[in-house]
């Protein structure tokens, strides 16, 4: 019987180049924005990434006003962080129907792009990603470090769009955080589109 059962596998703990932190934001209006932001956990192996992902709620099950953020260790998921303040984000805005059809698979694909360093030599420019669950339409964004680095930003945008499987004629825009923070009106101008 002992011979028939397979040997216990030793997992080698596959280790991607970066350690990542997963954050959770829950909109409690009685608290400050900072107080609502919580670090859930960090991981630096593929096994620990999945142990975390498999353990937490899917984005589509979160209450409106909540966010998940995945950022490289040492970068806080806010514009003001030293690594984010000269940067921006590729923003994907979803309609209400897409919460059911696309949100969870788009967010997982985003996580896989980050953890898997999908952006080739420009992966160093990636800071993290955020998913916002909102009644008026959910959003997913990939944050990069430098809005002036055209080559890195456009490469990241093209790869990201391809990985999500978005149709060619659908465009996504990249906005700097400073523009988003200082916008007047409901839309921020795009520095780049793909």
């Amino acid at each position: 019987q002992r011979a028939a059962s397979p040997p216990r596998q030793r997992f080698l703990r596959w280790r991607p180049p970066n350690r990542w932190s997963l954050w959770f934001f829950k909109n409690d209006k009685s608290k400050t924005w900072q107080a609502n932001l919580r670090l859930i956990s960090k991981f630096d192996t593929v096994e620990d990434f999945w142990a975390l992902y498999n353990h937490i709620q899917l984005s589509s099950n979160l209450m409106s006003g909540c966010d998940y953020s995945l950022f490289k260790d040492g970068i806080e998921p806010m514009w003001e962080d030293e690594r984010n303040k000269r940067g921006g984000r590729w923003l994907l805005t979803l309609n209400k129907q897409q919460r059911r059809s696309d949100l969870d698979r788009f967010w997982l694909e985003t996580l896989l792009c980050l953890v898997g360093e999908a952006f080739d030599d420009h992966s160093d420019d990636v800071c993290g990603a955020v998913v916002n669950i909102r009644t008026k339409g959910d959003k997913i964004a990939v944050w990069t470090a430098d809005y002036d680095n055209r080559e890195a930003v456009t490469h990241i945008g093209r790869v990201y769009k391809e990985r999500l499987g978005l149709p060619m004629k659908m465009t996504i825009g990249y906005q700097s955080h400073t523009d988003t923070a200082t916008k007047s009106g409901s839309t921020t101008k795009n520095k780049f589109v793909v």
């Binding site: 096994e47 999945w50 498999n54």
Partner: peptide
Amino acid sequence: GKRQYDRDFLLGFQFMPACI
């Protein structure tokens, strides 16, 4: 080039015992 982890490689770990 830099080391990448292919998505299918990563997905292959999702339901391994160490990950659940």
